[in-house]
Design a binder for these strands. Sequence first.
RNA 1: GGAGGGGUGUCGGAGUGGACGAUCGUGGCGGUCUUGAAAACCGCUGAGGCGCAAGCCUCCGUGGGUUCGAAUCCCACCCCCUCCGCCA
Length: 426
Amino acid sequence: MLDIRLIRSNPDLVKEAMAKRGAEVPVDELLDLDAQRRSLLTELEQKKAQRNSVSEKIGHLRKAKENADHLIAEMKELSEEIKEGDNQLRELEQKIRDILLIIPNIPHSSVPVGKDDSENVEVRRWGEAREFPFEPKPHWDLGVDLGIIDFERAGKVTGARFAFMKGLGARLERAVVNFMLDLHINEHGYLEILPPYMANGDSMTGTGQLPKFAEDMFKLEGEDYYLIPTAEVPVTNYYKGEILDGSQLPIYMVGFSPCFRAEAGSAGRDTRGLVRMHQFHKVELVKFVHPDNSYDELEKLTANAEEVLRRLELPYRVVTLCTGDTGFSSAKTYDIEVWMPSYDRFVEISSCSNFEAFQARRAEIRFRPEPGAKPEYVHTLNGSGVAVGRTVAAILENYQEADGSVTIPEVLRPYMGGVEKIAPGK
RNA sequence: GGAGGGGUGUCGGAGUGGACGAUCGUGGCGGUCUUGAAAACCGCUGAGGCGCAAGCCUCCGUGGGUUCGAAUCCCACCCCCUCCGCCA
């Protein structure tokens, strides 16, 4: 959510930013509603001040056993007006909030202007894509042939875009999770969080999934509970409505959770394999930081996510998303893309964003810079550290051998009980 | 799921229709005293909105309602605690 005061004082800046994103936003309507709200508020406050002082007077008269009927009659009328005004005000505020909640964040000045993902800018590359002396298999064939992934039975038991992981496949997934968590906890200084896997509508609004992206989520019937699309939701909302002590910042948290996504509108895309599932695991990095250094924190967070791929020795690149491709709540996003041989291109495996005060304002997460000072909004950041299913897919594909086996990356072997290879027929 | 109790400021805990944005204690900050510290004493100490300011308005779990006036009365919902049931 943007600060209404910014929109009021600098509407052109906001319009320009929205144009860069390709977003249609009714700024003028908003300003008109805001002006109405402000004049109504002034009028109402005057009336309330009068009501308060006269009501007090009535109290005094009553105590003194004097007659106050004429004042009461007068106040009855004023009260009616106030009630009506309050209703109008509530309506206006609702309309204003409804609009504010669908306005995306303003892109940071360093974000390249562009219309879609074709205009994202590569900032660095790491590792070399392996040359295969044989035709590499896609991970879904490898997984099925090795007997470690079963898509077909998942289709029977649940439906499309689900999978069973079996045997060493399940173990590999678990190893990847533990490796990532240990790295971020022990070496990068994050606090481990195991969050709830459902969150209420208010939390979903806080991080920006609602109201615009309801169709992307699974909702429990008859409840205000949604399956989380990412641990970002529960972990960021952990401090919802709170005022933190400035000395606590920065706060680093790493949450592991399954993620549930309806994938509405992606019918026909990535229908095979582990890349686009209704349920997948993700290790998510979340930061609450001082506004002055949130961009340094974004660089560090991205580096923390990259470290996962370096240790797994998976080739990747980092791109800065352009204005048209940057997510709704984000001011700046780096995507990390891993090399996927079957796609013959890089595939997104992490998305690292600085939301500045956008989420903090929605979720009311503030900090007090100094004892006694006024609270300010924190800046929130998050990034996948990284997506587990896609990591497993990338390992299978990049580490496959001509005989259909898959070598386990060195760093994962301790987590696999020393297993070095997953071979067919085992 | 059933029965009962409860949600008030950092925390504890008063307050059952008007002088209560809220007694008191506690914690925090500042000061007096002291060689220093502790103790004692004095003062300050929630959030938000509008305003240059003075000041005004709103907020006692949330949302409605009654009333000239609501922390206080009524209704609904949420959360917490205790007991029972059921489970992992």
